[in-house]
Amino acid sequence: MLHVEDLNIEFHDHIIPETVVYDFDLDIESGEIVGLVGESGSGKSMSALAIAGLLNRHDARKKGSIVFEGIDILNCPREILRSVQGDKISMIFQEPMTSLNPVKKIGWQVEEALRIHTDMNKEERKQKALEMLKEVELDDPERIYRSYPHQLSGGMRQRVMIAAAMINSPKLLIADEPTTALDVTVQAQIVSLLKRINKEKGTAILFISHDLSLVRQLCKRVIVMKSGYIVDSGETEEIFSNPKHEYTKNLISSIPQVKLD
């Protein structure tokens, strides 16, 4: 479904161009959950933004190819890209506090992708939005629908983000560190929610994180990145039990272990 080959991302907004991603390869089949792990600055978010078609076309120079269901994300005209975004590809961001528009009601924001991609009327959109809010396990969707973002907690906002991203049942959901800003109990809830969505709707998920234990719970396959390069990739269990690269070994050995003696 998604096929990324030899992706290189260079920034030209300074005098000396900077390459942030080298030779990135990735394949995602529909219904699959793939983990993308790496430290800050390893290029994982940049790769994700490129796949979502969100990289600024002025400053960044991209080589290689990203093909999503036959559409060349890197070079297609904006109109075609826009028809895919929000309909077939969605994304949720790391910081739930800033990823919702502070001056718009939740209902309006959840409906946005419907407004752009479908010709549903107001009532149908509202029904669909309420349904989605219920689906992401929010209590009292009617009230949430009428609320502003500042009236909700971080965990609730992240659920709202997921509802907004999933409203058109996309084929691919990119989750860019969706749990990093949340506390541990909420993290677990969000992860199990993503797992359920994946199972019920068959949405493929590209799960970006630096939390290896979460990745191990959620993903079948994992890709490890370091300073712009992919250093390791394969089945999650395989990588965890038998890491090939030195960096992966270090990463795995640095997972905190709780010892109670």
């Binding site: 979502a52 826009r82 895919v84 590809i89 961001f93 800033t98 990823s99 528009n101 924001q109 946005e112």
Partner: peptide, 14 residues
């Protein structure tokens, strides 16, 4: 540059 503008762009808004 706020995330919610990125999110709007990603929902396919012109």
């Amino acid at each position: 540059n706020m995330d919610y503008v990125k999110a709007a762009r990603l929902s396919g808004a012109s």
